[in-house]
Amino acid sequence: MHPDDTSRSTRRAVRKVWDDFSARGMASGAYTEAVRAPWAVRVLMGGAGWLGALFFQLFLVGSVFLAARDNGWAMALCGAAMVALAYVLYRRRLGGIALEQFALAISLSGQGMVILGAAKGVAFGRALESAGFWAGIAAFQALLFAVVPNRLHRLLCALTAWGALAVTAQRLIGPSALDGWLAYPWPLVGLVPLACVLLIAFTNNEAQLCTADRLDWAEPAADATLLFALGGALMLTGADRPWLLATGGAAPIGMHWHAGAVLAFLLAVFAAAEARRLELPNAAGLPAVIVALALGGLMAGAPAVSVGVLALGLALRRASLPWLGLGVATLLAGFTWYYSALSWTLLAKSATLAGAGVLVLLARVVLLRRGGTKELR
């Protein structure tokens, strides 16, 4: 991890390791700690980069884009040139926050021009209805993820690729009884649990990835996967609301139940794996698995709650504050969205939420009494 991204305690630990290595003759020279610029300076430099990118794009609009706006493939070629420029700036590592933000803005604009130009070149309406077009967008984002070494750029590319995959899956499903945008949450029934499986795999293999020096691409991919899983779970949790509004109060389509059942199973699997890793006795490990399964089953109608709980577990496993914050925010939003659902009575929702709280409190009592381990305390 770069020194700029570490806390004071971590920097002190790094300094101590350096001093120990120097005392053993394994390192030479004085320890130099990078000085991080104040946040106000970083914000101003980032804004300067985006402002420079804005003027550069205004120049393109006046000189190239207006002439090529009716030619989709020419627009796509211009966008590809902008992406190539951003790639060169990133690869040469000329440094500076402003230049990195300039490259990011140019790349995002270029990607938009490539996609829009390709859609216009094929036939805009037909392209949007084609699964191949959206699969091409996912492949394009995957290519950029692989070749551009910037972390934020990789995060955005991976997140866009996930979204394109969801639309591709929806296009492959084909016409159904659902009309238009009402059908889009269906692919999330499979993609959200898949994203959770990948997150569990990443967390369990993070040490090996670090040893193999692969965290520079694995970490932004995992962050994007987490954002997609949390956002998709929130969409599934509230999927019955637009359906009920559009159909005048018909029965809910139940897609959140399908995802919730799979996520309950994944919670139990994660709890079992953690109990084994921590070497908990059966008196503590088995109740943990049962509680995870019961909680996931109780909240099967609110997949966002299950994914939020899983995100909390993964965050504690990784000691990651950003993941912890996202998990807490998703839990709050999931409970709120679930409580405002139109397909449940207030009595049923209140009983479910109260039952979930009682279950968690009882689980704590049982685990502390039967586990007797410091880890549980």
Score class of each variant (00 low, 15 high):
Ala319Cys: 05
Ser340Gln: 07
Val148Ile: 15
Gly297Val: 00
Pro3Cys: 11
Leu346Ser: 11
Leu172Gly: 02
Ala23Ile: 13
Leu94Trp: 15
Leu178Tyr: 10
Ala158Lys: 06
Leu234Arg: 02
Leu215Trp: 04
Asn282Lys: 14
Arg92Asp: 09
Ala351Cys: 08
Phe65Arg: 14
Arg151Cys: 10
Ala264Thr: 06
Gly52Phe: 04
Gly49Ile: 02
Ala356Asp: 01
Leu326Trp: 07
Gly62Glu: 08
Arg171Asn: 00
His2Thr: 13
Ser343Gln: 11
Ser320Gln: 01
Gly308Ile: 02
Ala288His: 03
Asp19Val: 08
Lys374Phe: 03
Leu89Glu: 10
Val122Cys: 10
Gly371Arg: 01
Leu155Trp: 03
Glu206Arg: 08
Ala164Thr: 04
Arg126Gln: 07
Gly313Arg: 00
Arg370Leu: 15
Val269Lys: 01
Pro281Arg: 09
Val148Arg: 13
Ala53Gly: 05
Leu44Met: 13
Leu144Asp: 09
Ala13Ile: 05
Arg377Val: 12
Leu199Trp: 00
Leu312Met: 05
His258Ala: 13
Pro242Trp: 01
Leu324Asp: 03
Leu332Gly: 10
Glu206Ser: 12
Ala229Tyr: 02
Gly248Ser: 14
Thr32Glu: 11
Ala48Glu: 03
Leu347Met: 08
Leu278Asn: 01
Pro287Asn: 08
Val64Ser: 12
Val41Phe: 15
Pro193Ser: 09
Ser306Thr: 15
Ala319Gln: 10
Ala118Thr: 14
Leu227Glu: 06
Ala259Phe: 00
Gly125Leu: 04
Gly95Arg: 07
Ala131Tyr: 03
Phe21Met: 12
Met255Ala: 09
Ala158Val: 10
Pro303Cys: 02
Asp70Ala: 12
Ile253Asp: 01
Ala319Arg: 11
Pro175Ser: 08
Leu346Tyr: 04
Val289Cys: 13
Leu89Lys: 07
Gln141Val: 05
Cys78Ala: 14
Arg377Trp: 06
Phe145Gly: 05
Leu226Phe: 08
Val114Lys: 00
Ala119Ser: 11
Ala103Lys: 02
Leu376His: 01
Thr336Gly: 09
Arg241Gln: 04
Thr32Leu: 08
Gly25His: 01
Trp337His: 14
Leu234Val: 04
Thr336Val: 14
Thr247Asn: 06
Tyr339Phe: 12
Ala76Leu: 11
Lys120Val: 15
Met82Gln: 12
Arg276Asp: 06
Gly190Val: 05
Ala207Ile: 12
Ile97Ala: 12
Gly79Gln: 00
Arg8Asp: 10
Val64Gln: 06
Thr160Pro: 07
Cys157Val: 11
Asp4Asn: 06
Leu165Gly: 03
Ile290Ser: 03
Gln111Ala: 11
Ala105His: 08
Leu89Thr: 14
Ala67Asp: 12
Leu198Asp: 02
